[in-house]
Design a protein around this nucleic acid. Structure first.
Length: 134
DNA sequence: GCCAACGTTGGC
DNA sequence: GCCAACGTTGGC
């Protein structure tokens, strides 16, 4: 079981839209490192959903329901997607500022590698964010 | 809107 | 295979 964090700009695809859809395929990844992370995702893995640019906060938890397959939005076989469903909305969104200020989250990729859009999390980091959001 | 960080591209 | 130039992301 692994833990992940994905970013989305809310005006492009928001958590609210995700809840409305009930299920989505995570497309648009055009970065090799992020792509590699998508390929590592297993069914049942939990994924934090982060709003970048506007909001800059973790807003909910999703779950992988289908492992990677060819990105249907491009012919290029380099790129893949996974299917996600929403699991729960955080009672209190966890902001980037909170994460940066938290002593247990100093090494999180969200802070250390700001531009990466799909990253893995340690269990401790995942749990910490969940507890900050409860 | 600016700019830092960093990934990618292309010339040599 | 190195590295400069360029483009993109995302925080501020």
């Amino acid at each position: 079981m692994n833990y992940w964090l994905v970013k989305s700009e809310p005006f492009k695809y928001s958590w609210e839209q995700f809840l409305k859809d009930g299920r989505t395929f995570w497309d648009g990844v055009r970065n090799y490192q992020a792509r590699n992370n998508l390929r590592e995702m297993k069914e049942g893995d939990l994924v934090l959903f982060y709003h970048s640019n506007e909001g800059k906060q973790v807003v909910g938890v999703a779950k992988v329901v289908k492992e990677f397959y060819q990105d249907p939005t491009t012919e290029d076989p380099n790129w893949v997607v996974v299917d996600l469903v929403p699991v729960e909305t955080l009672k209190k969104p966890v902001t980037l500022a909170q994460i940066k200020a938290d002593e247990y989250l100093q090494d999180i990729s969200l802070v250390r590698q700001g531009r990466l859009s799909v990253m893995s999390l340690k269990v401790a980091e995942f749990d910490r964010i969940i507890s900050l959001g409860s």
